[in-house]
Amino acid sequence: MKTDEHGVHDLGGRQGFGAVRRDGEEKSFHGRWEASVFAMASVGQVTSAWNNVDRFRHAVERIDPDAYMKHGYYGRWLGGIETLLVEAGVISQEELNQRCLDLGAPQENSVAARPKLKADPMAAVAGPWSKRPEQKSPDFKLRDTVVANAGNGLGHTRLPRYVWGKEGFIAAVHGAWVFPDTNAHGLGECPQVLYTVCFKSTELFADCEQQTSIHLDLFEPYLQGVEHE
């Protein structure tokens, strides 16, 4: 596992991808199995095995990177669900592999799930939603200039690679929200102030046109203030 850079899921600004491909029908589900995966990710008795959306997102991020690119959206979810159910002890990969063989799967199959031998701890969640009472006043106010930290690629974060070290300004202040970076790992909700930060596209990408800006919702610990002289 790479620990020194961003994961395969962190796609913003990555080069080399081609045209957006529309499929003809654009149905919600292409085949019953996709709806089955959706149901497994939404029925409370199953999702209690991971108990928060941040842990789920992180499980999807750490599946086999090749599968991430090739198995499609519900294939990625399936990898995440299997990862978490194995980590929670609800199923074993051996019994799932055997069941796949029973259903006619070939012996050699790429398995997306990447369960850890020792799962992250589980922490209590205060409810299904993520907004929380503010514990302190925000460090930044509207129009303040800020710089996004450089991440380290360790664990879950909602700070995309393409803004690491880049300068923007506070465009909105949204109060305190559950902090995904701790919540995903069972380290508590640790609510943090959330901001919308506006970046000039030319600050992010040398080859970008002038007239574009990009807005991201970033948590206070991701940001540093900038003193202007």
Partner: peptide, 25 residues
């Protein structure tokens, strides 16, 4: 993706296990 892709089989297998274990209907 067809109904019998490896992912569709794995989803079917996982669904069956979860139904048997009482986690899903």
């Amino acid at each position: 993706m067809s109904e019998r892709s490896p992912q569709s089989i794995r989803a079917e297998a996982l669904e069956a296990l979860l139904i048997e274990k009482g986690f899903l209907k």
